[in-house]
């Protein structure tokens, strides 16, 4: 990876860091002035290092997609700072337009995210043209990128989105996202709608592109195996908060949060002798309109103690580079199953 001329803070400075990110929907306004408040993202802090892939997992309503949309500034956060390569978003040093060129997103629905009336090459050339490139130069870049994602421009460039397969459409979306030469690519369930045999092709492509363009990924998926395979670090979200974050293999092989463990134990095995006999969790994820007090997971947690119902756990270090929001993982927290402090023992 060559050094990006746009790099400002050097390799040790995170490409993106987020602190105190909050987004609530509803509440104010509404027909009667006060509707229910959906606490979609409720105080989230994390950073993504240059060149790494951060995987994000969690169930519906956990806030993973809202987090992505806040990073893309599709929705504006209610609170919190976004710092990109050392510059705070919204200051004179980093305005929205400059930021957006460097952060691009690929969505799950490959068809809904393309304009049906633009050909594939027009789609990819659109962004560069809007950012001031001449029509000819933009088209040349589009052809380059289409070739790069495995779509021969002479064969595919003039087609419309409905004339190609789902896997090919997702390649178009990836080419379009790369057309503005971003540094961070947010992939929100980008391969989830693809068939398995096509998914593997697109994952290989993402791997190649990351290396060749020096990209950083935020990879959101519900498929834990895919996330482990793609990511350096993994962030697990539950009801608008981070449950656990750390190195991918630590999180997915030795989880410290009972929710992560339950997610893993819910994955059906392909070995008929290893069928799951009992569901790890009962019920559905609770509604983010009225998150439970204390630890948000306590209503479904088999280890919940009195402490968990009243005091919300912080996101605390439990192993090198590994943070978890669980009283059980923290020494001396007061939870009956917490490791005891060596001094107290």
């Amino acid at each position: 990876m060559t050094l990006d001329p746009r790099d400002r803070g050097g390799p040790a400075q995170p490409l993106l860091s987020v602190s105190g990110l909050v987004k609530h929907f509803g509440g104010k306004g509404g027909l009667l002035g006060r509707g229910p408040v959906v606490r979609a993202v409720d105080g989230v802090d994390f950073a993504i290092a240059k060149g790494e892939t951060l995987g994000v997992v969690g169930e519906s309503g956990c806030g993973k997609s809202t987090t992505a949309r806040l990073l893309m500034q599709i929705n504006r956060p209610d609170a919190g700072d976004i710092v990109f390569d050392g510059e705070k978003l919204g200051t004179r040093a980093l305005d929205l337009k400059t930021y957006r060129r460097q952060v691009q997103m690929v969505f799950q629905d490959s068809y809904a995210s393309l304009n049906p009336r633009l050909t594939i090459e027009e789609t990819v050339a659109f962004g560069p043209k809007a950012h001031g490139l001449s029509a000819g130069a933009a088209l040349a870049r589009a052809h380059d990128l289409l070739r790069r994602v495995g779509l021969e421009p002479r064969r595919f460039g003039g087609r419309y989105p409905h004339e190609v397969s789902g896997g090919q459409r997702q390649r178009v979306n990836i080419a379009r996202a790369l057309a503005l030469e971003p540094r961070l690519l947010i992939l929100d369930e980008a391969v989830s709608a693809l068939d398995k045999s096509v998914e593997a092709q697109v994952l290989n492509l993402l791997d190649d592109l990351k290396r060749d363009f020096g990209l950083t990924y935020m990879f959101i998926s519900h498929d834990l195996n895919v996330v482990r395979f793609m990511s350096d670090r993994v962030m697990v979200m539950y009801l608008g908060k981070i449950a656990e974050i750390g190195p991918a293999d630590d999180i997915l092989k030795a989880p410290r949060h009972p929710y992560t463990a339950a997610l893993l134990a819910s994955q059906p095995s392909t070995d008929p002798a290893a069928r799951i006999e009992e569901a790890p969790l009962t019920g559905d994820p609770p509604n983010p309109i009225n998150p439970p007090p204390g630890c948000r997971f306590h209503t479904r947690c088999r280890f919940a103690a009195d402490l968990c119902r009243t005091r919300e756990p912080g996101l605390d270090p439990v192993a090198p580079s590994h943070l978890a929001a669980c009283h059980m993982a923290v020494e001396g927290s007061g939870h009956p199953q917490a490791p005891t402090l060596p001094m107290a023992a």
Binding site: E59, S266, P268, A279
Partner: peptide, 11 residues
């Protein structure tokens, strides 16, 4: 369905 709900329905 979410993973933790899917396994409940399968069972």
């Amino acid at each position: 369905l979410d993973a933790t709900v899917q396994i409940q329905i399968l069972l």
